[in-house]
Design a protein around this nucleic acid. Structure first.
Lengths: 226, 226
DNA sequence: TGCCGACTTGCACTGAGTGTCACCCCACGG
DNA sequence: CCGTGGGGTGACACTCAGTGCAAGTCGGCA
């Protein structure tokens, strides 16, 4: 709902600016309170009060307490779709997907601090993790469909698009988790590329040749470091 | 909580039998009501009433409304751990994992109807899906740790155990979803084996040689190894 | 039989999430 | 410049998930 506002009629009137300001205020209030006191101790009344709106208004902006922290998911999915659709048609599905994923990983780097804050909150809030995973499953469906189209197969019959989408996004998730666990210090696209190399080349290969990963990593500069 | 009861002291007294009967009654009542009316329309009062216990008692058996339908997750994880631990030490991590996963897939076949019912409910209940995914993330951690141990590496440093666990379980999930979407008609272990073949051999290979999957499947017949 | 402890239950309470209605005020047309 | 329609807001009431507590019930065991 909130991200659809941008392409509406009176898109720069006082009303719209006020909307955006309120949304940002709620989000900021929520993040700060969660970080200070913990997700489940903070009530929606607290958040609303801090943002100077009513409790009822909070729910006009966010569907749930969890969604305040996950409001970026639709945006990221849109980016992923766009990036994937933007790849040349002749490009093999896997290559296109890799480029799209790496492009998205670039976004993460730019929001490092915000993501670190959120990760800290999420680490001790199972319900938040659950919702986040549910969002990511939507990505899977979208990616599976797009991969299937590129391959020219029916995703409800052929297992491969689904496996490609699920395992690729799962690897992205692992890479991001590792990145966050190390305070966002390694170069994320490098980590992601490592994970994708492992997948694309075959887990079998990756595990058998123990030096495969590191050998490949050296070719892409500024690796994990530390 | 509920699955720990089984290895307690008075394990076959009247009390314990009554416990199991109540748990089963609650689960059955819940599933039927959910199927009849829909997950979010059914209240816990409804379930408790149908099982002839108080609302308060419901929460002593299940932590949440969602958990009634997901009570098998801990059991499955235990099976997976056990199956994986039971593989010979010298076996490569990936082979051991494959056998463990296929062994678990055998369980699914035996509970076909129950899983189909649940899938139907889950399809229209996002919160349920979310919780289920959260459970599966716990599997990931467990599998990643065990794979890391077999590989003799530190899972917090080396990306590979995490990627192997996440992508393998994601593929399992895709295979199960496809199985359920087709009314549990295909042989599940076969579907799962296909998905794992695709992963292990490399997504690149799998997508390039279009016939690779089917060809390879024929070579590993009863790979289920139960 | 009588005690101990596990299990159950009713009750009260917090907090998430939703529907409704009156009110306010920006946007827009006259 | 003014009236008005409609989007945004707030107050209120309500349902329901989930939890703490204290009293009651009943099986296991001596």
């Amino acid at each position: 709902m909130s991200e659809r506002r941008s392409d509406q009629v009176g898109r720069d009137g006082l009303r719209e600016r006020h909307r955006l300001r309120t949304e940002a205020a709620l989000e900021q209030a929520a993040v700060r309170l969660f970080a200070e006191r913990g997700f489940d101790v903070v009530t929606i009344d607290d958040i609303a009060a801090r943002a100077d709106v009513s409790r009822r208004t909070f729910f006009r902006y966010f569907a749930s307490k969890e969604d305040v922290l996950l409001s970026d998911h639709p945006r990221r999915l849109a980016h992923l779709r766009h990036a994937l659709a933007g790849r040349p048609e002749v490009e093999p599905a896997l290559t296109a997907l890799r480029h799209a994923i790496l492009s998205m990983a670039g976004d993460y780097e730019e929001e490092r601090q915000r993501l670190l804050d959120r990760a800290r909150i999420m680490a001790e809030t199972p319900s938040l993790h659950a919702r986040s995973l549910a969002h990511q499953r939507l990505w899977e469906e979208a990616v599976a469909d797009m991969v299937a189209e590129r391959m020219g197969v029916d995703p409800t019959v052929d297992l491969r698009p689904g496996v490609v989408a699920a395992s690729t996004l799962a690897s992205l998730r692992v890479a991001v988790a590792a990145w966050l666990a190390r305070d966002g210090r390694p170069h994320l696209p490098t980590l992601v590329a490592e994970a994708l190399d492992l997948l694309d080349g075959g887990l079998e290969q990756g595990l058998t040749r123990l030096s495969a990963l590191r050998g490949r990593r050296r070719q892409s500069p500024g690796a994990t470091g530390r």
